[in-house]
Design a protein around this nucleic acid. Structure first.
Length: 460
RNA sequence: GAGAGCGUAGCUCAGUUGGUUAGAGCGACAGUUUGUGGCACUGUAGGUCGUGGGUUCGAGACCCAUCGUUCUCCCCA
């Protein structure tokens, strides 16, 4: 028999990993609740129509489709064969697949809002922390199953929402002691640029090219723009636009000069100004205007966010933005929203890489009772249960064995305290407690055990 | 979707221009030590060399295919 394996890009998580992941998840969840978001969970799978066409052509290819059941039904053989022929031509087909795994949390959320519009109080603020699946080729910081943690506010155009989300980002990364840059931009600015360079249909070409600025440099970007059929004048306009540098304020000034007269550009600039102005005193957010920030997801229309860790290269660890009409895709027009997402798995990699996880996250048994015989272990078990009743975790060694072996077990599992009840202690109604870290050992009556451990535990 | 690297013991790896019986460290288990762990010493177990084919007198090593994995590009969290 072959060794068992797990699907490409998925992982098992052992105890130590889970404690660290929970540290991140708890931090994020607490922040979500602190900022007034309510919880939501949606199914792992959605109807395929809900997902297809929402993430662009690339996205459609990366959606995991679920094969329908009953394809082997002989009565349907002809239809199924015909349907499969269409799949071979590159079209998904409901005869073959009518469900798919969740690709992100935003679209299922929009679907939920559209379905439950009447029951919700607006602005509706929800958070959601669940795994998503993408059929990408795995590599560093990229998995096929990973957690996203989203907070969205729908039913409000107010820019105060962007401010809230920027602070929420800063709050979480501050709690995690993780230095980050929160990059912000506005699609309206990019739209204005596109409009001044040949029209909205150029937007995609322009954003794809300028997004690479810090990777390939201005000359290569110009080349790419040329290949994408932009004229010399247009390329010149773009390269002027890309020259902006300096502080956020300086960037805003430069932007005003280049696209400030364009109505959409003007709006975008004032949106950015609003967010940057709402800083709490003394503790500025790590916000940085980045006009090359575009983000691939099709539905963003206003503010866009992207979070990069400082000092560890792994792509973005968070992203989000404003969308004017997400629920319109599901028949509910005029519900604007804005949201952000945390990439837990990448945040984990960064914290691990920078050694930023707090020590002492690992929770296991506080006490190990040695097993030194039948009567002895019966007494130990009774005492163990009284500790557990007071919320002190512990376990009894599973069988009588040499002390040596039981000590080693405690040590390997990181159990800080052992309680020894052998024939002598049993007869005298005493117990011996040893702290493994210091080797300190005390013997006293069994009725004092609970108190003794309770006072010790706070210092462990 | 395009490209590159790597698959040898549970883990990390060594293995010479192709040459006899494939090694080390760590870990596991046992013992030195049947009421006191970490240290030390001794011993034991554990390998279809990812899989399938090919070249060769001879393949862990060379060739082809395949699977797995890691990384890069694309795109993303």
């Amino acid at each position: 028999m072959n060794k068992p394996t797990i699907p490409q890009g998925t992982r098992d998580f052992n105890a130590a990993t889970i404690y660290k992941r929970n540290y991140i998840l708890n931090t994020i969840r607490n922040a979500f609740q602190l900022y007034g978001f309510e919880a939501l969970e949606t199914p792992a799978m959605e109807n395929i129509d809900t997902l297809m066409g929402k993430y662009g052509d690339e996205g459609d290819k990366l959606i995991f489709k679920i094969l329908n059941n009953g394809l082997d039904n002989p009565a349907k053989q002809a239809e199924v064969t015909a349907a499969f022929q269409k799949v071979l031509e590159g079209k998904t087909n409901k005869q073959i697949t009518e469900r798919a795994l969740r690709y992100d949390l935003t679209i299922p959320f929009a679907r939920y809002v559209a379905m439950n519009y009447g029951q919700l109080t607006f602005p509706f603020k929800r958070y959601q922390m669940q795994p998503v699946w993408r059929a990408d080729r795995p590599q560093k910081g990229r998995y096929r199953e990973f957690y996203q943690c989203d907070a969205d506010i729908v039913g409000s155009n107010a820019m105060i929402n962007e401010v809230e989300l920027a602070h929420l980002y800063a709050h979480v990364f501050n709690m995690l002691n993780l230095p980050v840059t929160i990059k912000i931009n506005n699609r309206k600015i990019l739209a204005a640029l596109a409009d001044m360079c040949g029209g909205a249909e150029k937007l995609t070409d322009i954003t794809i090219a300028i997004d690479k600025l810090d990777k390939i440099g201005i000359d290569k970007v110009k080349e790419e723009l040329q290949q994408r059929n932009l004229t010399a004048t247009q390329i010149e306009t773009i390269s002027e636009f890309l020259k902006i540098q300096g502080t956020n304020e300086e960037k805003l000034n430069t932007l005003s000069n280049s696209i400030g007269n364009h109505p959409s550009g003007k709006e975008g600039i004032s949106d950015l100004q609003f967010i940057l102005a709402q800083q709490t005193t003394g503790n500025p957010l790590p916000l940085e205007i980045d006009v090359t920030l575009a983000r691939g997801l099709n539905y963003y229309t206003g503010t866009i966010f992207e979070v990069k860790a400082i000092g560890y290269n792994i792509g973005s660890i968070g992203g989000g933005g404003r969308y004017d009409n997400l629920t319109g895709l599901f028949g509910l027009p005029n519900v604007p929203g804005v949201g952000i997402s945390f990439g837990v798995d990448r945040i984990y990699d960064v914290l691990e890489g920078l050694d930023l996880f707090p020590k002492q996250l690992i929770k296991c048994s506080t006490v190990l009772f040695f097993n030194l015989g039948k009567d002895e272990s019966n007494r130990s078990f009774t005492l163990l249960q009284t500790l557990r009743a007071q919320n002190i975790s512990g376990e009894l060694y599973h069988e009588p064995a040499k002390l040596d072996k039981q000590f080693k077990y405690a040590e390997k599992k990181g159990i800080p305290l052992v309680v020894i009840i052998g024939s002598k202690e049993l007869a005298e109604n005493t117990c011996t407690v040893k702290q493994l870290a210091t080797g300190q050992q005390v013997t006293f009556t069994q009725s004092d055990l609970l108190n003794y451990i309770a006072t010790l535990e706070s210092g462990l």
